[in-house]
Amino acid sequence: MLEVKNVDAGYGSTVILQDISLHVEPGEVVTIVGANGAGKTTLLRTISGLVKPRTGAITFEGKDITKLEAHDTVDRGITLIPEGRQLFPDMTVRDNLLMGAYCRHARDYQDDTLHEVLELFPRLRERLDQHASSLSGGEQQMVAIARGMMARPKILMFDEPSLGLAPIIVSQVFEVIAQVAATGTTVLIVEQNVFHTLKAADRGYVLENGRMVLTDDADALLQNDHVRQAYLGI
């Protein structure tokens, strides 16, 4: 479904990603784990078109999307829930969610999707008319996820969804991700919270210093010595 082939990418003269390859199949939950600064965020930004690869190719559903702008990849069905939530602070929760349904294929269903999404996040129903900036961190993360779902994506990418959240909220976020996956949406998660993520995923990749060093089924990675030592502290 999504295939990244030998991609190099970076900002300015700084190279972040080197020779990255990965693939995600329909319905899978795939995770990319790695330390802070390994290039995880850059990888998601490259897939979504915010960063242009220098070499290599990215294909989605068999079509080349390497050179597409970010707003075009959304129209193809690729949605990124960015790190740090990135809500529209002076817009209401409702308007934030409606912006999620801006892309062409989601527009006509926006009312239905809003209804479905609010079923999943009943707390947000009470907050619809509040400014996004007035919400707590956990609620803002829920808005960010709900806004991503409003695009009715084929693949939903999460960048550090648990960052800066209290442990109990982190568990809620992973429950929601499991629910998203259960609806048949393909999920790609990038996380520092390695244990939680590998528990939730089917397969995983380990990214270190901008290179893929390891890939396997999530269960196997949880048992892998290198992963256990470097990321789980066991």
Partner: peptide, 9 residues
Amino acid sequence: AAARLMGIN
């Protein structure tokens, strides 16, 4: 940046 991720040109 977030607007671009919503599909806004």
